[in-house]
Every structure is written in structure tokens, then in C-alpha cells.
Nucleic acid binder design. Structure first.
Length: 277
DNA sequence: CAGATGCCCTGGGCGC
DNA sequence: TGCGCCCAGGGCATCT
């Protein structure tokens, strides 16, 4: 389930492999992955002939800027992959979008079994993409992130974990990294945000940076299903360093108490009952 | 406005 | 071997 660290890993791959190249055409399979376009042919028409000039990321969204105003946006959802594919090589199952390039180099394939992900082509209005306007700040890219975390928790009755995962407030943190960040910060997932002291809010921001930068350094997390792969099809390494997520009953690496799993709304939260307060 | 719920969707794992 | 069931969960629409 690609979150900020996995999308950032993909972005770096896409930047290295696709920046400067011109899209010859887009092959589409069905409507769902380009569902923002009333007619999928519109997506193909908008990207054809565009040269990719750079890449960006806001939260879990990856953006490809081009030589005109067109911006191609990708979101991986639960199971989306962006894969470097040899031109002419048959598309694997669940390939929904495939970008071909005019230089004979590798294609970019969007593969997504569960189809929660999407791609679309759009353009900025007043320098911003309307489709991403609902997103909150990026915890790594925003230089004001520390102050924004402090402001966010102040006076808010919401519990910490839903707050961390609320993309309209902080962009890029999902279920997995929320658990790891809260463990790193020593804070319970169900802790009311407003109850945090100033040092605890600072620790929460520090934990975001620590966990997310380490996860990027290790090229993201691939869980048991190995659904997450980078652009080259490689699994990440950071799952080996998970301390609570997916580790129910195993000893907390800090105090040895068994990691606890709690469920709410069909989502699992993993935490240490002893050292998260 | 915030929180809760249900839906979208498929592969993999499990029990029988 | 195969079938039905459950689970994973991000984003969004819809409700209270």
C-alpha cells in the first residue's frame, strides 16, 4: 500500500528514467483507472506528444510535469504499481495504462489489480492543481511542518491516528506509517490530539521525519503480499525495520511487551501498550 | 464540521 | 482440488 515513502521512491525512479523523454502514446485498458476523464481517449490525447520535464510529489500523489501545461498525476491506491517495461513486451495482467515513448526506450506501465488507484491528466490553475487542492501539508517537504503539526494538535479533540491519516490535514501518511510514527513518538494511537504537551507535539513531528526519511532510504515497505514494488520491480527493505506494524504478539523492540493489535472500522492499529502513552 | 459507515476491488489465505 | 468466506485498506459519498 504505497504511502509517502513508497511514492517518493517511485518518483525518484521515474525522474531518473523518464525525465526528458517524449510520450509517443498511451495505451489504455478500460475506463476505471482514468475515471476522472469522461472519455479515456481524452487522457491519451492530452499526454500524446508531451515531453516529461520533471516529477513531483504531494503526499501520496506523484506528478509528472510536461513541456506544456499538462500535468500527469498518478495515485497508487492500495495496489497500484508503476513499472518500467520493455517496449513491445506484452502487458502483464491488470495493466491499465501504458505510456510509450518516441525514443525506443522503456515504457511506463501502471498496473493495479484492485483498481483503487488512478491516473489523470490535468493542468494547473493559478499555479495549483485543483484535484490536489484538498491535500494538507507534506510532512517532509513543507518547511513549516513542525509549526503546522503543533497547530494541528492544539485544541483538537480528534484522536492522533485518524488525524495523522487525514490527507486533508497531513498528506502522505497511511495506516502503516501512522503506526510506526506513533510508536517512534511514544504516543498512543487513540490519544486525543489536544492532550499533547508542546514537547510531545515536537516529538511527533520529529518522529514523522525520522520514520519517513528512514523508510525512503530503505526504498519503502513491501508487506507479505509484496504488492509494493519500485519502478524496477524490486521490493523495499523498510518492512524489516517495522517495529509494531504487522507485529501483533511479537515483543516490542523497546520494552519487550507483546505488541497489541486493535481494530476500528475494519482497520488495524498496532502499538505497544507499555511504551506508548 | 467532524466522525462514522459503506462502497469500490482482487489476490491470497484459510477452513471445510 | 475447489469452493466460499474473510481480509487488506485509500479515498470518497453520504449520513448523523
Amino acid at each position: 500500500m504505497p504511502e509517502l515513502a513508497e511514492v517518493e521512491t517511485l518518483r525518484r525512479g521515474v525522474q531518473a528514467e523518464f525525465a526528458g523523454r517524449r510520450i509517443a502514446g498511451a495505451d489504455l485498458d478500460g475506463l476505471r483507472s482514468v475515471r476522472r476523464h469522461p472519455d479515456p481517449r481524452e487522457f491519451a490525447r492530452r499526454v500524446e506528444g508531451r515531453r516529461i520535464t520533471g516529477t513531483g510529489r504531494l503526499g501520496k500523489y506523484l506528478t509528472l510535469s510536461t513541456d506544456d501545461r499538462t500535468v500527469v498525476v498518478a495515485h497508487m491506491g492500495m495496489s497500484g504499481q508503476l513499472l518500467l517495461s520493455a517496449p513491445g513486451e506484452p502487458s502483464r495482467r491488470h495493466t491499465h495504462v501504458r505510456l510509450r515513448f518516441d525514443d525506443g526506450g522503456p515504457d511506463l506501465a501502471f498496473v493495479d489489480p484492485r483498481t483503487f488507484g488512478e491516473m489523470f491528466a490535468t493542468e494547473p490553475v493559478n499555479g495549483a492543481l485543483a484535484e490536489l487542492a484538498h491535500l494538507g501539508f507534506d510532512p517532509l517537504e513543507d518547511p513549516q511542518a513542525g509549526a503546522k503539526v503543533a497547530a494541528l494538535v492544539s485544541g483538537r479533540p480528534t484522536r492522533l491516528k485518524p488525524l495523522l491519516m487525514d490527507q486533508s490535514r497531513i498528506a502522505g501518511i497511511g495506516n502503516m506509517y501512522a503506526d510506526e510514527i506513533l510508536f517512534e513518538a511514544g504516543l498512543r494511537p487513540d490519544r486525543p490530539a489536544a492532550s499533547l504537551s508542546a514537547p510531545e507535539a515536537a516529538a511527533l513531528h520529529r518522529a514523522m521525519r525520522t520514520v519517513l526519511t528512514a523508510a525512503i532510504r530503505h526504498r519503502g515497505s513491501s508487506l507479505a503480499d509484496e504488492q509494493y514494488r519500485d519502478l524496477y520491480g524490486r521490493v523495499g527493505d523498510y518492512q524489516k525495520r517495522h517495529r509494531v506494524y504487522g507485529r501483533e504478539g511479537q515483543p516490542c523492540p523497546r520494552c519487550g511487551a507483546p505488541v497489541k493489535r486493535a481494530r476500528s472500522h475494519g482497520r488495524s492499529s498496532f502499538s505497544c501498550p507499555e511504551c506508548q502513552k
